[in-house]
């Protein structure tokens, strides 16, 4: 790993300032970034730790909206969101393993936008809002492909605001080695509107499965998506799953998420 200057601001304002340095990179839980740096695939000159900023931590609920500070570890979300938004808490409680969940944060996960990460599915299906040091970004606008987001240079995610759906669930199918998602579905229903977000499957990262959404809006039941498949052309094909397999799993995991949401 190349060396770097380590700074640990205690306020967002200081962090924003620190991020202006040449070659600065935000460090949240580091559960992906540090491995990447060990492989020398990332070599920031300055690492700005966001773990010491109190205003970026915690889970709060106001009415039907839940806000999660961007530097809140998954383990905390799994616990503190359990009552207000159990599906999202369950998602957080299934990321990686307990030690990863102690450190990894929602902000770090979203900023990285790994195509097999769990949080992007929950955020996109929930139509959440990503709050940054500069603005607010709708989930539909935030995810822009593999490891690509709407974030600008130096922009820091500070919180994520979730409208709490009436019913929701996340059905995760593990990639057997990494324990990331091979193809997983987050289904959220509010009123009669249904949003389905799929992670792990697509060459373009997390996506909304509109065909599934249409079918489920008409009939919110596992049967509604039974046999439906995503377009295999857009799917990732690798050692762990062919394009056709992932396309089929999109339907299967969506149906399972619906069954869980109805339970």
């Amino acid at each position: 790993m190349h060396n770097f200057d380590f700074v640990k601001p205690s306020s967002l304002a200081e962090a924003v300032k620190a991020m202006q340095a040449e070659g600065a990179q935000a460090l949240s839980g580091g559960q992906t970034l540090i491995s990447t740096m060990k492989q020398r695939l990332a070599a920031p000159a300055v690492l700005v730790s966001l773990t010491g900023i109190a205003e970026m931590k915690g889970v709060s609920v106001a009415g039907r909206v839940m806000t999660i500070g961007a530097a809140t570890p998954h383990a905390v979300v799994a616990k503190e969101a359990a009552k207000a938004y159990p599906a999202l808490a369950a998602l957080a409680g299934g990321i990686g393993d307990p030690a990863v969940r102690s450190r990894g944060t929602i902000g770090g996960s979203l900023a990285n936008n790994d195509p097999a990460a769990c949080y992007p599915a929950g955020v996109l299906a929930s139509a959440a809002t990503i709050v940054t040091s500069r603005r607010e970004i709708a989930a539909d606008d935030f995810f822009q492909g593999l490891f690509t987001t709407a974030l600008e240079e130096g922009e820091i995610i500070t919180a994520v605001r979730f409208p709490i759906p009436d019913r929701a669930a996340y059905a995760k199918f593990l990639q057997p080695a990494s324990r990331f998602s091979l193809t997983s579905a987050f289904v959220a229903r509010t009123g009669s509107a249904v949003r389905v977000a799929i992670t792990g499957a697509s060459e373009n990262g997390v996506f909304r499965w509109t065909e599934g959404e249409r079918a489920l809006s008409a009939n919110f039941s596992p049967q509604a998506v039974k046999g439906l498949k995503a377009n295999a052309d857009d799917m990732i094909g690798d050692l762990h799953g062919s394009k056709a397999y992932r396309a089929a799993l999109v339907g299967v995991m969506t149906a399972r998420a619906v069954a869980m949401a109805m339970a």
Binding site: P176, A177, S178, R179, L239, H240
Partner: peptide
């Protein structure tokens, strides 16, 4: 069930870490 060592046609080991070489875990 899960362990596979895969070299592509160029001889690159595509299962060169625990991210792609599936070690059985307790739950498996």
């Amino acid at each position: 069930l899960c362990e596979n060592t895969f070299y592509d046609e160029n001889g690159q080991l595509l299962t060169g870490s625990y991210m792609d070489y599936a070690m059985p875990r307790a739950a498996d």
